[in-house]
Design a protein around this nucleic acid. Sequence first.
DNA 1: CGTGCCGTTGAAGGTTCTCAACCGTGGTGG
DNA 2: CCACCACGGTTGAGAACCTTCAACGGCACG
Lengths: 228, 228
Amino acid sequence: MDYCSLFETFLRDVPSFAPSDEAAILLDAIAQPFRIARGGVVPLDGSADVLVYVAKGATKLIANASGGREQIVAFHFRGDLVSVPVDSWHSYALCGLSESEGLVFPAEEFLKRSDIDPSFHNVLLQRSLTALHRCRDKAVGLGRKSAEERLASFLVGLAERIGTRDGPPCTLDMPMSRRDIGDSLGLTIETISRQFSSLRNAGLIETEGRSRVILFDISQLSLRAGHI
Amino acid sequence: MDYCSLFETFLRDVPSFAPSDEAAILLDAIAQPFRIARGGVVPLDGSADVLVYVAKGATKLIANASGGREQIVAFHFRGDLVSVPVDSWHSYALCGLSESEGLVFPAEEFLKRSDIDPSFHNVLLQRSLTALHRCRDKAVGLGRKSAEERLASFLVGLAERIGTRDGPPCTLDMPMSRRDIGDSLGLTIETISRQFSSLRNAGLIETEGRSRVILFDISQLSLRAGHI
DNA sequence: CGTGCCGTTGAAGGTTCTCAACCGTGGTGG
DNA sequence: CCACCACGGTTGAGAACCTTCAACGGCACG
């Protein structure tokens, strides 16, 4: 994808104004395109917070705790806008699960220029609130849930975001590895694997190869996830 | 505090426009004042997301996981604006740590009306990003940290928000109980108590009564917190 | 002065982690 | 074409950390 179509995709996905608008021109001036391979890291200048638009592929937002421990804070897919802080207790990086492309904006500049268009500004606010609410639900899971509940939650949540809608059964092609799932749920790969086996034995899911999961009964899974 | 002074405090704390502005009048029309005692719950209509402004006191945002387990997602103090979702996997409630007062706004209406003033809109966006970043750091702690690291993190974070600035030593008057701390860090009260004892024995902190903590060496605590 | 809640400490138990071995798959090079 | 290797995933056994259960102490409040 060349820069032009990247930026057009951005304007289509983060909706509410046409490419000719004044705000679009201003944003165009500060956009930095990127393209990363599976496992690659989105280049951040490291001096200021950034907003990253994911145009294609799938990414993970990683926080580094001390001692080499990693925590995946969120997964982001095509169309998502990710806020990546620089000056925080933990260092963050946005990393490709598959080959991915998109745009990097300096956050401060971006927000300043988006003032021009209130409805665009509203979209940003809405999205950051959605991210906040997702992060809170994640925090609840990390703080108060067993391994089984976490994995069930994870699968149900993923089904809502990227699953086939014509279920049941619902088929899920996960772009992330067992390690990624573990790093996201605060568990080890071994525990993830054991919980997959347990759900398989319970007849709730089936796995094909490394990345495909079939969910037979989402409501049952939701029950095991400890959702209210 | 009567409604008028509540609303004036709101306009002062969530800055950028004077009480006479058009936006202020519009917001005035949808504000619902509340006053809760220690342990009381901010009344939410339950049909739509709300934004709560805390004018006085200290509050906790609680998520209910199934099985009676509670997870405190965030603490909020005077001057904070809290987004409380209604339709989520977990049910949320905003609860007083001490006698508290403030204003409740329907989120959708609030955001719609704040369009009028871009700089106000910017403040909202900035605040929700701050909340998101805090929530992420919390998620890292819940996912990847030991009990000692969590408590050290908690104390350092609290010191930044409500500690005396003239330290060291830094004195902390915590409005929350051991149970609250446990519910916030994903641990039991017993573990919290043991970790307090451990930090006391290490000479890093001193406790006076139930709510006062004195931090002798914040950098040392920060080290134990596993911050990068 | 009694009662109740909050906090502390101890001992036993459980869930998850760590360490280790094994298997299947996909890619590479002889 | 096949052997080999690297890597991701699975499974088992023991250890670590936190929880659970239980008892006790102290402060606040009626």
